[in-house]
Design a protein around this nucleic acid. Structure first.
Lengths: 263, 263
DNA sequence: GAGTGGTCTAGACCACCAC
DNA sequence: TGGTGGTCTAGACCACTCT
């Protein structure tokens, strides 16, 4: 009778109690949480129930665990600020790509790896933004951004980025070559001496947030309980023509977004 | 032997196979997934294992389940576009708040409820943006935004929003009263006949994405596997003074974000 | 080798919904 | 009332890490 009048299931009580300790700071990032056997005794529950409680916190992104090691309170990795807005030209003036300059300003060292550069038909979401029929030929540059780790540390994958260009414009240019473009693609597009030479005057960024798919988890090394943002950035010139569409997948544990908007 | 040379655990196979069917579209949103008993037979696994596989998909936000009913593929609720940028003044010109005008333009009917209006010390994140000491007195308007459902349908909670104002400026004005302000707080702040009369010229929005806390789950009715964005929006006037800071929690299953940036 | 977390089974009871 | 999903137990074996 009435030992548990509130009807809170044991696994939930375990999750709630541990979560409270984490949020309150009693368990700090990096701390070990009690072992499953200790939790069994503390809550008088079976191992399966303890594990279920712990699983809740894992899927909330609050703890990490792996075989053989103690489970620990998740440490937030270094967060990189993804800033968009009036700072764009200033960052670009460094001669680096916007992304790399932003990273450098934060004392980080960004790098891009080419996954592939191909000619391919436009998927629906891309065609829509280019205002062309789905399937229209596009030059696609698929990159992976990584943040270089400190001496002896591993690199951190930061995002997957597919950059789309109208094949009628980009074919035959360096955009269609499988090597990095110094200064970034935007500088290449805008270069008045270059084959395109059109100035970007507006970006539209569409963000959509969800849990990652398995291939994203694998390519970006995303822990359980971490969402991703899909960011589709369309670049326009003053005539309203679309110059570039970036389709990126960004893990939300290592990124914060900042938008500066003048009205 | 070698019945399972790939070493993929059964619960993972179950999750992978069902996920593939969902992504491929064989199982469409709203469709029932096979019952746990059917899955036991199909995969030759115990109920616990089946449940574990299904739990993976639940925490990925792909399916929903509740007692007594079949589990189904999650249907995405109507997504509301949260648009920020050059459209701001146009929306405001309708005489409604920016948010309500945006909703109306999408054929939706937004509404605000006041949770409370109090004077309270500034939390760190807010003080930082106001460039004042933590604990400085603030007027705080805590609202909850809902989208009115169709005839006979339930309303959908859309966000929690805490609006902060310097108490030295806002105390004694309608901002400190526990009732809604027609046309929105920004119009009130900018009204040249009003007590403040300062024009907003810039917004900075900071987005941070994570899994929700239990109180957010409860107040916003957030399903398992759905992340939230914490959006902190700071409004400046041309002198660089901070006029307002909004601290919002936004469930990512009913929102898409769009930023229009002129460079 | 001891201790940790990861996986699985077999069986039980409960709460809820729809027919 | 039967089928569904939700919860729990007791016990087993495995994979890994750390000391």
């Amino acid at each position: 009778m009435s030992t548990n009048p509130s009807k809170v299931p044991p696994f939930k009580r375990i999750a709630d109690e541990l979560r409270a300790e984490i949020i309150r700071g009693d368990l700090a990032p990096g701390d070990r949480i009690p072992s499953q056997e200790q939790l069994e005794q503390r809550f008088g529950a079976s191992r399966a129930t303890v594990r279920k409680g712990v699983a809740v916190l894992r899927s909330e992104g609050l703890i990490t665990s792996s075989q053989g090691r103690h489970s620990t309170v998740r440490e937030r990795p270094n967060v990189s600020l993804r800033q968009t807005g009036s700072i764009y030209r200033a960052r670009r003036a460094t001669g680096e790509s916007n992304y790399n300059a932003e990273a450098r300003a934060q004392g980080q060292n960004a790098q891009q790896e080419i996954r592939e550069v191909v000619e391919a038909p436009a998927p629906d979401a891309i065609a829509e933004r280019f205002r062309v029929a789905p399937g229209t030929p596009m030059v696609v540059r698929r990159l992976r951004f990584v943040m270089k780790g400190a001496e002896g540390e591993a690199d951190t994958p930061m995002q997957l980025c597919d950059a789309y260009y109208d094949a009628a414009v980009a074919a035959g240019t360096r955009l269609a070559e499988a090597r990095l473009i110094k200064g970034g693609t935007n500088a290449f597009i805008e270069n008045p001496e270059g084959p395109i030479g059109r100035r970007i005057t507006q970006f539209i960024e569409d963000l959509d947030v969800r849990m990652p798919y398995p291939h994203e988890v694998e390519q970006l090394d995303i822990p359980i309980g971490v969402p991703v943002a899909r960011v589709i950035r369309t670049a326009y010139d003053s005539a309203g023509d679309v110059l570039e569409v970036l389709d990126s997948i960004v893990p939300c544990d290592r990124h914060a977004f900042r938008y500066v908007i003048d009205v």
